[in-house]
Design a protein around this nucleic acid. Structure first.
Length: 423
DNA sequence: TCTGGGGTCCTAGGACCC
DNA sequence: TCTGGGGTCCTAGGACCC
């Protein structure tokens, strides 16, 4: 048996931990540039505000119902997530973090009769220890855990933990569960199934295995088996990422090369630091920039350049020079670039690389320099030392690239803060 | 006017091989 | 007009997740 712990309205809950006055008020958290809704309190959900809607489309509702809006504050969410996950880790022999707000534990060390109570206590402990409300779902497969956790979230009578441990409970739970809400069933799949008259998880489970296989192939088949209680989805943590992305939408489009290069240099730096943190190198980088797909009134432009490296590296200066050389010829002055980003892929572990006879770089020296730069930054802050390309071209321009008007303080990750904490 | 960011897995089809 | 067959590897794009 697994138990899934799923934080309720996670980003909103994080903001509320430090704003007890908002505990029973409508609250939402916004994406970058305060663009879209990415987390909603129950009060906001009740107002019919959907996940992902742009803020400008719900301005009236926000004002009318005095909804508290926050810009996203990922250093806060990451820190509170780590605290929740560490409490979960203490309660099991096997723990798998699935996302920033979800983790699976196994319950082999708890007798079947005590599992529900055990999880109810864990929910209480996490709430007392972190201020974050959590719902738990207990079941023999992860997909069923997800179903159970949604029931736990929806009905207070479950005391925060819902268990599907008999066939009777399983069928009852699936009968009232929309197929589109099942983990692994997205819009396309739900539409395909709707065409066959299938709308609940139970109807889907009652399809023949061979029909599911021919219609939805491997992913659909796995979901079908999971709903029958067969554990077959592996979520074991990948020790290192297979690709690393940094990309941003700009509040005001970028139209000049120096400003674009500065942004790309910072993206490249962020990716390269992540790469070095997981002790890897990459052999491919992709750099892209494009105009807003919503603006049908202006000239559209999309740049995508892939660079393959014959020798994998994690050196920021080296990666940046390849990147800018590939990008520069395609940049068109005056085009309104709304989004840009960098992707590192073909990632391999450090030390797995064989020296190249025709290598023209002094890698020993490069590595030593990069290590020194990293050390200075660890000690004195990220901006203590930067590449020239990363420097803002002008203060006025730099200030206009992003927008974040409702940012909460970095309560947990910045020193010298006086805090009011809800107990 | 304003519309997020970072991932994974799977599959079909092209390139290439003998 | 007729134009092999079978296999592997790689990649782009689709679908999905939070």
């Amino acid at each position: 048996m697994y138990a899934l712990a799923d934080c309720n309205n996670f980003f909103v809950s994080c903001e509320r931990v430090f704003r007890p006055d908002l505990w029973d008020k409508p609250v939402l958290v916004l994406s970058g540039n305060d663009g879209c809704v990415i987390s909603r309190s129950n009060e906001v959900k009740a107002l019919g505000i959907k996940m992902g809607v742009p803020l400008y489309q719900i301005r009236d509702l926000v004002e009318k119902h005095h909804i508290a809006c926050f810009s996203s504050n990922f250093s806060l969410y990451g820190d509170l997530s780590a605290r929740v996950m560490s409490l979960l880790r203490n309660h099991t022999t096997r723990f798998e973090q699935y996302s920033i707000d979800e983790g699976f534990i196994t319950l082999d060390h708890v007798s079947p009769a005590e599992r529900k109570t055990y999880c109810e206590n864990l929910v209480r402990e996490i709430y007392q220890g972190t201020g974050i409300p959590v719902s738990m779902g207990i079941a023999p497969s992860k997909t069923l855990c997800k179903v159970a956790s949604k029931y736990a979230k929806k009905f207070p009578g479950y005391n925060g933990a819902c268990m599907i441990d008999t066939d009777e409970k399983r069928l009852k739970a699936l009968a009232k569960f929309e197929i589109g809400d099942v983990w692994g069933v997205g819009r396309q799949t739900a539409a395909k199934l709707a065409a066959l008259g299938i709308s609940t998880a139970l109807q889907f489970a009652e399809m023949s295995e061979s029909l599911v296989q021919s219609l939805l192939h491997k992913p659909g088949l796995l979901t079908w088996r999971e709903l029958h209680g067969i554990d077959c989805i592996d979520t074991s943590e990948l020790v290192s990422k297979q690709s690393i992305t940094t990309s941003r939408t700009f509040a005001n489009p970028i139209t000049t090369l120096p400003l674009m290069e500065q942004q790309l240099a910072n993206f490249c730096d962020t990716c390269a630091r992540k790469l070095r943190m997981q002790k890897s190198l990459c052999a491919q980088l992709i750099v892209f920039a494009h105009t807003s797909r919503f603006r049908t009134d202006i000239e559209q432009c999309q740049i995508v350049q892939t660079v393959n490296l014959s020798i994998p590296t994690s050196d920021t200066r080296e990666l940046l020079s390849y990147m800018l050389n590939a990008f520069r010829p395609y940049f068109r002055e005056g085009v309104q670039f709304k989004k840009a980003g960098v992707i590192f892929s073909r990632i391999v572990p450090e030390g797995s690389v064989v020296a190249d006879l025709f290598d023209e770089r002094d890698r020993t020296r490069d590595t030593a320099l990069q290590r020194t730069i990293d050390k200075i930054r660890d000690k004195s802050g990220r901006n203590a030392i930067l590449l020239a390309t990363q420097l803002p071209t002008s203060k006025e321009q730099a200030a206009q690239v992003y927008k974040s008007e409702h940012q909460s303080p970095r309560y947990t990750t910045e020193l010298s803060q006086v805090l009011t904490i809800r107990i």
